[in-house]
Each structure stands twice: as C-alpha cells, then as structure tokens.
Design a protein around this nucleic acid. Structure first.
Lengths: 194, 194, 194, 194
DNA sequence: CATGAATGAGCTTTCATTCAT
DNA sequence: TATGAATGAAAGCTCATTCAT
C-alpha cells in the first residue's frame, strides 16, 4: 500500500470512528451527514468522497467494530485456559465493547430497519459468526465437563442479550465501576452455565 | 364521561393499537404519520385531532403498553405463590410482551433518541417503576430464603436485558415454540437467582 | 367523477400545462421543481402531492401533448378528403404542435436520456403509434394512386424530422408568418410524395 | 508552435474527441466531468488544465466537429460537378456526421439551453455559416436551372431538419445500411428541389 | 502536468404539521 | 369530526470547480 493509500485508509478510519461516536450519541436516524462532517471539521460533500452514501458509511462503522470484537473473542477462545475463564473473559470483553460503542453495537439489533437488502445478508452473517464464537466456547466447556446445560444456543442468546442491554443503562457515574459491573455480570451469567 | 368523550377515548385507543403495530413492524423513524393513518383508513390530518403531534402519539403508545405490562406483573406479585413461581411467571409475561410489541417495547430503551425533554422524565420514571416490580419479586424471594444473591439490581438488569433482547431474534417460525422458549428462558434465568 | 376529483384533475392539468411551458423555455434539466412551482404560485413541496417525482411529472406532460396530437391526426385521417389534403393538414397540425410545445415535443427524441426504464417502453410505443398515423396516410395515398414512392417509412421519417426541426429555429418574429411557413413546408414535403 | 505546445494541442484534441463520444452516448447533462476523465484514464482535475470549465470544453467539441463539417461541405461546393450531384454529396456528408456525432451535433439545436451568453453568438454564427454553404449550393443550382424553387432558405431548413433528425432513430442494426439510407434520403430530398 | 482531496451551491425528495372547508 | 391540500424545513446526494502538493 502506497503512502497515499495508507493516508486515505487512515482518513476513512478517522471518519468511521468519528461517525460511530456521533451516531452512538444521537442514533442513526437523528444523525445527519452534516453532523458527522461537522465533528470532523469537514463538509458533508467531502464525506461522499470516501463513502458513497450514508448507509455505506454505517455499514463500514458496523464492520469495523464487529471485526475488532471478533478478533478479541477469537483470541480468548485460543487461550490455554479453562472454559469458565474463557467465558468470563469473553463476557467482559463483550461488555467493554458494548459500553464503548453503544449505538453502533446496537445496530446489530435491527439491521432491516436501517440497511437495504444489499447489506443485510452480509451483516446477519457476520453477526452469526460472532455469536458462533460464544457457541464454541460453550460447546467446549460442555465437552470438557465444565458446563452443564442442554440448550446451548439459548444460553448464548441470554448471555449476549443481557450484555448487549448494558448500553441501555450504563453510566460511568453509577454506583459500580465498569470493572465491578463486568465482574458481577460474568459471575451471574456463569452460574447459568454450571 | 359523556358518550362523545367515550367514543373519542375509544378512537384514541384504536389509533394507539394500530400505531403500535405499524411501528413495531417498521420502526419509529421509518413509520410516517401517513402509514399510521392508512392502517386505520384515515387521513393523516385526522390524527392530529386526537394527538397533537407524532411524539405525543408515540408517548401514549408507550404508556399504554407499559401500563398494561405493569398491571400484569403487579398481579403476579400479588399472587399467593412462591417467589420462584412469581419470577418464572413474570419472566414469561415479560417475554410475551416483548415479542408482541417489539418496537414499542424497544422504545423503553433509548427514549432520549426519540422523545423531547418534556416526556423523558415521565418515561424514565415509569420504566423504573416497572423494573421496580421485578426488584420487589427478587427482594421478597431473597427475604424468604428462596433466592441467594447479593447484587439484586444487577440481577434484575440481567434478567430484563436478556428478555428484552428476545425481540431481536425471535421468529414464530423458529425451532422452538414461544412457550418452549419462555420455559427455557425462565429456567436459565432462575438458575442465576438460586 | 365527484366535484373533488374533477377539481384535482383540473389542478393536475394546470400543473402539466404550466410545467410544459417552463420546460419548453428552459429545457428539462435546467428546470427545477422550484421553477415549476413558482410559475404556479405554489411551493415545490405541493407538486409532490400531485406527482410523485419529477420524472413522473414530465411523463404526464409528454403524454398529455402526444395524446392531443394523436387525436388531431387521427381525426384528419378519418376525414373524407384526398390523401394530398390529409397529408397537408397533418403536416400543418404537426408543425403547430411542434412550435407550441417545443421542448416537450422534443422529449420524444431521446427518452433514454431523461426517462428511466419504467417509462421508456411506454413512451416509445406511443411515439410509434403517432408515427404510424402518418404511415397510414401515406399508405392510403399510395393505394389511391395519389402518392408515388417506394420507401414509405423513410419518407415519413423525413417528413417528421423536417417538421420537428422547426422548433429549433422558429420565431414568431421571423420573415414569414406561422401560416405561411406551414404552407411552404407542406408544399415542399408533398413534392416528395408525388 | 513549440513541441510542448503541439503536445498540449494534441492532448486537447484527444480530450475533445473522447468527450464528444461520451456526450453523444449519454447527453450533455448526464455526462459528468468524471465520466469524460474516466474515458481518458485521467482524473477530472486534470481536465481543468486544458479547459477552464465544462462549457468551454463543450464549446470546443462543438467547434471541432462543426469546423470539420464545414470543410467537407465547402470542398464539395468547390467541386466541378452538377448542383444535383453537389447536393447529393452534401446531404450524404451531413448525414454521416449527424450519425457519428449524434449528441454533439444535436447541440447545434438549442445552444441557449447549454451555453452562456458568451458563446451563443459565436455558435449561432458558425451554425449560420454552415447552413449558408447549403444555401450556396441551392442558389447555384437555381441559377444554373437545375433546381426550381422559390423559398430557398425554407428548403434548406427542411433538408437540414430532416437529416439532423436521423440521429434520433438511426441504428446500425436497422433494415437498411447507412449507405442505403443516405442514398434514399438524398433522392427524396432532391425531389423537393427539382 | 497530474491528481487526490475538499468544497459548496444547488437539486430532488420526504414528511410532520397546519388549516380552510 | 374528518379531510384534501398546501407548506416549509430539512435531509441526502451530486458535481463542477479549486488547489496544495
């Protein structure tokens, strides 16, 4: 990749980060291209130099964050530790991202209300792959005799549902610190699997 | 209440039910006043006779559903049964509503992105009251020695989070029936409390 | 048709006439919805109450004029006169319309550059039907022994081409009156057919 | 002219030819500077090194083609052949260009809709000079007793109109070859002059 | 010379809202 | 009460044009 290209790639990522942040604050529909541009001290016209429309921009936001998350969880899965430990770590990592990326992560929820058919399949697939990582951890734990449960997929849905929801109410001014919350969540959810 | 007033009240509720249904399908931002009116075989102008604007309409949708849900859970709380049973019933009832009212229930999530300041406080309060009902069930269960847990609020958040999330993926064509799903969810989540 | 409906239909036609006139002056691409609205003392938003987009509006402009023209020529064809007379009348009628509706008539030319696929077929068909009326006159004249020519379609194309072109240069301030021009055109073109 | 200048001149002509071709396909308004640049494997910024804006570029396209056409017809006029032959040749030559340059030639039609006042006069003048060449052929033919007609200008307009129109419908997949069409056109139009 | 990047004016379109009838 | 009609503000998007490098 040439210098030029790397510069452009960096700019694209800057835009995505910035857009993610604004969208997380205001929601996708209430965020205008102008809002996003303003945050970057650009004009909205310039955004279209990098992304061909609003949906495309969002799609890449989504992709960036989900890809990052997948790498994290995949790494945890590869670690040489007990399944209980893996799941604890995975839950904490997931909570971390959900808190940070609020709205973007929330997009995973209802792609049909935002994305056109072109992207939905891609998005749903990626979301499934991500969820699959948690399935793998659970399955491995069950095999190893660490977890005892019948409906593994259901358990995974409960775990991801509960953790995704945290963005709804989390505030860094709450009674518990982020780390404490993550600890408590992990403990509770692990109880379900044992 | 005069006949006329009662007629108007009924019409209002018709509108709210209809609007809820459309919004649940399409999402709030993608639903236009025209869509809502069309569903009722009215014209959008008429809606403004009953509700002074779109937000007001949505606010009352929200209220209608949340009030109904509160009554259900309150009744369950008053029943003369074990806390375990109460919680099971409450979880199932909550799942029922979440599945049925999808989008509207989803509003409970991020009111700031939709409602203006006039309503937010009201909405947040009601949501807290509703959540409080679950807290009461948990507290009672702990008192009675049925539940064993320290962070009661956290547990409640996990429960509501996990159950709210169901709207994201639930489909009546899935592997499990609604009743089965509710049973499984209730079982898993109860494991957390014992 | 109710009074309401007739009123609306009339308004639609008003808009079409007005739009035709503006477009004929400025060309389709240089004419904004605002221009059209201004001519009617409306706001551009209102136009969308009657026509769902700019293309649709243009399509109906086109239709209105072409339908009118077809009726004129069809009537001439039905008259009980010699083919020479029919063709003369048809040429004059066509010139009349071409002069009056300049730009709209010009649309008949390159629909692909303006219309999306949805409309092109319809437009091309109508245009063919219209041209077919001239073919019928020519064929009848040939049968009756009034015209002597081999490539009838080619002759028709020359006639319509020559007459369509008039909008390019016609001005009511020129050396000849519109009637004189029509007379001369008809005479010249008839020479071709005899 | 220095080497550098000649290089630049050549590049300019390359651009004009390329632009003509794209515009002929898509029409002026639907052709963006990017389209033109892409065809030349350039970036749109570079175009502005050679032409100060889109209108200027179009103006020179127009000029290039019309100048070429004028030379052709002028040469025909100078030939030592009968006026009938001259006119036949001129018609065929004109048809050739009209078919090839479609859209650009079409520009001759409505300069006001595309060009600003700066260019209109120039364009109209050149167009008149071009048309004048046909007038000269006709006048000479009348003088020589080959043609018999009163309104010479009108005849010329009919001839140019009919031939210009060919771009509207010509396709190289039609029933007749280009040569045949030209022959037929020339024959028909000549009948008008005799 | 060429280009990548940025700009901003202008366009079409949508839609909540208003209001006379 | 209900509605057809109109409005206007705001959004997404396009593209000719500019300019530093």
């Amino acid at each position: 990749m040439s210098l030029r290209e790397r510069k452009a790639a960096k700019k694209k990522e800057d835009i995505l980060r910035s857009a993610s942040s604004v969208i997380s604050r205001q929601g996708f529909h209430k965020t205008t291209m102008e809002d996003i541009a303003a945050e970057l001290l650009m004009t909205k016209g310039s955004l279209y130099y990098y992304f061909k429309n609003k949906e495309e921009l969002l799609f890449h936001c989504h992709d960036l964050i989900l890809t990052g998350a997948m790498e994290l969880i995949e790494d945890i899965y590869q670690e040489n530790i007990s399944s209980v430990e893996k799941m604890k770590k995975a839950i904490k990592a997931h909570l971390d991202i959900a808190i940070q990326e609020k709205e973007i992560f929330n997009l995973i929820v209802k792609p049909e209300q935002i994305f056109s058919e072109d992207h939905i399949e891609d998005i749903v697939n990626k979301r499934d792959v991500y969820a699959g990582l948690f399935d793998k951890i659970i399955a491995q734990g069950a095999e190893r005799g660490e977890f005892h449960l019948r409906q593994q997929k259901m358990a995974r849905m409960i775990i991801l549902g509960a953790t995704n929801w945290i963005q709804v109410w989390y505030s860094d001014k709450g009674e518990f610190s982020k780390d404490e919350i993550e600890e408590i969540y992990a403990d509770y959810l692990l109880k379900m699997l044992l």
